[in-house]
């Protein structure tokens, strides 16, 4: 049974690779033949070439470092903070009932409207961007933490009582491991949203960083550079997501799921 499933997985993977490869190939041909004008989309091979050239030029390093460090800080803050807040909301039903409608509507609010306010409070520089991205990412982690803690099976808690575990032991040995898959999907979302928050903020409201460079290249009709940077951002985020996904799969396999 397991072998059969693995085989089906493999087949789907191959088809997926083939689909993606032929999509890229079709775009390449369409661009080379001239069906798609170069003012719209440039050929994938040209994107890669431009990416290598852009990475070799020395001015990109500072932007890259700024963006990635902002993302890393926002990620750390939102994961830790989101977990703690989610934990508290799970234990205090009153707060939870009160905050639920706001948590549910949170992602419909345009956060960027509050950016000028953040600039006044935190000053210019990377701080407001980090706060913006943290606020954006943290709620996903809060919701995931609450969902995970809610779904800890009753049986496990009864077992914990039978073994007379102290509260801390129960949390550490039973609740957290049982909630781990949900926590991990929260981490995945927090990672993605940190990237979205920082890059979108840079895109619209900043004067440096990768997001700003993309917007700047667009304003200057510098398509090769723009596509190169877009490709770069997408590649980084995809690599990161795949790493978390692989870890999640390993965890799931160890649980025998």
């Amino acid at each position: 049974m397991k072998v059969g499933k693995a085989k089906a997985d493999n087949r789907a993977t191959w088809i997926r690779v083939a689909v993606l490869a032929s999509a890229v190939g079709a775009l390449e041909i369409a661009c080379r033949v001239g069906w798609v004008p170069a003012t719209m989309v440039i050929a994938p091979s040209a994107m890669v070439k431009a990416l290598i050239e852009t990475l070799q030029s020395d001015d990109i390093g500072a932007h890259l470092q700024q963006t990635l460090s902002a993302v890393a800080i926002a990620m750390g803050l939102s994961i830790v903070g989101g977990f703690l807040i989610g934990f508290v909301l799970h234990w205090v039903p009153f707060l939870r009932r009160a905050f639920n409608p706001f948590l549910a509507a949170y992602y419909a609010i345009p956060h960027f409207a509050f950016y000028p306010l953040l600039i006044v409070i935190f000053g210019l520089g990377p701080a407001p961007l980090i706060v913006l991205a943290t606020l954006f990412a943290m709620v996903a982690m809060i919701v995931a933490t609450m969902a995970g803690l809610d779904r800890v099976p009753r049986v496990l808690l009864k077992t914990a009582r039978m073994h007379r575990l102290s509260l801390l032991e129960e949390i550490w040995r039973i609740r957290l491991p049982a909630a781990a898959p949900h926590l991990l999907s929260g981490v995945k979302l927090a990672v993605a949203y940190s990237f979205i928050g920082v890059i979108a903020g840079e895109f619209i409201l900043s004067t440096s960083g990768i997001g700003h460079e993309i917007a700047y290249a667009y304003d200057n009709f510098d398509n090769p550079r723009m596509y190169a940077l877009i490709l770069f951002v997408l590649a980084i985020v995809t690599c990161f997501n795949m790493a978390v996904y692989a870890y999640e799969r390993r965890l799931a396999r160890r649980r025998g799921a």
Binding site: D9, R16, I196, G211, A215, Y218, I230, V233, L234, N241
Partner: peptide
């Protein structure tokens, strides 16, 4: 099965970078 990981991948990329496109 073929499409799901592609969709999940698309879901988590910062789509604002695609706005110029």
């Amino acid at each position: 099965e073929v499409a799901e990981p592609i969709l999940v991948g698309l879901y988590s990329i910062p789509k604002i970078t695609l706005y110029p496109v």
